[in-house]
Design a protein around this nucleic acid. Sequence first.
DNA 1: TAGATTGTTAATCGATTAACAATC
DNA 2: TAGATTGTTAATCGATTAACAATC
Lengths: 217, 217
Amino acid sequence: MERFSNISMAVVRRLPKYYRYLGELLNNDIKRVSSQELSKITGFTASQIRQDLNCFGGFGQQGYGYNAEELHREIGKILGLDRLYRTVIIGAGNLGHAIANYSSFDKSGFKTQAIFDVDPKIIGEKVSNVEVLHLDKLESFIMQNDITIGIICTPKAYAQDAADILVRGGVKGIWNFAPADLKVSDDVIVENVNLIESLFTVSYLIKEREETNSKKR
Amino acid sequence: MERFSNISMAVVRRLPKYYRYLGELLNNDIKRVSSQELSKITGFTASQIRQDLNCFGGFGQQGYGYNAEELHREIGKILGLDRLYRTVIIGAGNLGHAIANYSSFDKSGFKTQAIFDVDPKIIGEKVSNVEVLHLDKLESFIMQNDITIGIICTPKAYAQDAADILVRGGVKGIWNFAPADLKVSDDVIVENVNLIESLFTVSYLIKEREETNSKKR
DNA sequence: TAGATTGTTAATCGATTAACAATC
DNA sequence: TAGATTGTTAATCGATTAACAATC
């Protein structure tokens, strides 16, 4: 397409939010929305919303606003949600199970093809219709099944090994839940979800809130 | 303490990373570290690291650097990790299970006291030594057991109800895994973990990478 | 046409980086 | 003391907000 990749991550991270809010508008049969209305819903300023959208094209119409359905569809395309992604999950623990069972990923086009583990007790089992295979088979499975995304749900100590296999197999992106910094080749995307860091900010903010409160009195 | 709360979220979100990297240094018996060395490990600039740390106090020593153990301990205190947090999980689905079983939360002082659900089939069961109780009991449980943090692992449609009960019960923070914007009173912290938004940025970045590659050739 | 709202440029704000004096 | 590295101020960079002409 005609667009560039000098889009800042700040903008990129707002796109899924726009997509979600527009989906909600559509669920409520709202067909038309102005940046001001979107501002009220999302909490971003109208100015920022217009700036963000204009990174990708002029989706609006002066005097009218945006067609909610069209904008939703276009942002979906921008996010790459107009295709199908075959995924594998590494680690059949609780988190691996949770992700395999999470139907909204499936609905959005992210299809889990297999789960990999090393524990002989669970290999061969099925988790929400997806088979658990031995990690030994991961690399060839990726190549034979056109897997785009690997989801790492292993303990920290095994995360880099898992990433190495995923990269050798040729995935394009890794969604990493292990609290480790993966080293991968430049052409592979890594998105980290670090739950413990997220939880620590909760405790930080609770503490901070308490301190400012006790100061006021 | 003497510190203020005009710390930007950008800084706050780096603190858990510093904490983690310092923990790793200590595991490797490294007692002393300069901002330059930390820069190499973390990928942040040395200048930024010094700026960040100085928001909270002068933990270093000119000509020497930082004492890794002391800095680790101090950042732990800043994050509020020197106390114990009693938590409850709402939603005994896969994600609720995964979080109840995640031992690193426990190790860091976040202790799950009970899991709540409405499904009669699982009420009374135990998930990693924690009992599943009926949602009806949530509010009184929070008050009687000094619960600080509620963890919402319900489907989206029930998330706001769960949040309302948590707030009435008096929690100080909510860790929310449902893709919904919770409305809570100002004195309650909400930290959202939106998995679908995170996954969408993966597909965005994969697509963007492909486009820039195909342009180069 | 008059009113509304976008697309876009310019102004502001905040966060990051550079530089260096202070000092261990 | 000489060398190293912090703490901190100043400069730069990037992101957000404001403003308004373009136009539906």
